[in-house]
């Protein structure tokens, strides 16, 4: 699991690579800690190379979405592979997280 974060003219670009599962969910939470700070965040996450997420990963996406909403910001997840997208759909996460 790899998390790459770049800031570009007020926008935060994130690339997620690999699997988020029980072994690395805690590390993932630490990796995205910088996204939990600052007012009016504008976050775009490239999920094209994210191959798997368990409920542990979903939990962190939910925490992040809650934090972004509370700070009056916005977040989009892009290019999610269909199998991972299905997990977001089943759990109703597609309704509360913008997936493009």
């Amino acid at each position: 699991m790899e998390t790459i974060i770049n800031n570009e003219s007020g926008k935060t670009l994130v690339v997620l690579k690999g699997r988020i599962d029980t072994t690395n969910a805690d590390q993932f939470q630490q990796d995205i800690a910088p996204l939990m700070e600052g007012e009016h965040p504008d976050i775009e996450i490239d999920c094209s190379e994210m191959t798997y997420t368990s409920s542990q990963g979903l939990r962190i996406f939910l925490l992040l979405q809650k934090s972004v909403n509370a700070r009056g910001g916005k977040m989009v997840l892009r290019k999610m592979n269909p199998q991972v997208k299905e997990v977001f759909d089943i759990t109703g996460f597609s309704n509360i997280i913008t997936i493009l």
Binding site: S54, S55, L58, R59, K66, T91, G92, N95
Partner: peptide, 20 residues
Amino acid sequence: DPDTTSSAEERQVGGLGIYL
């Protein structure tokens, strides 16, 4: 089962595993 229709603010973080 978790309520899959509630908003982000209302959603609980747990209970997803067995539901999956």
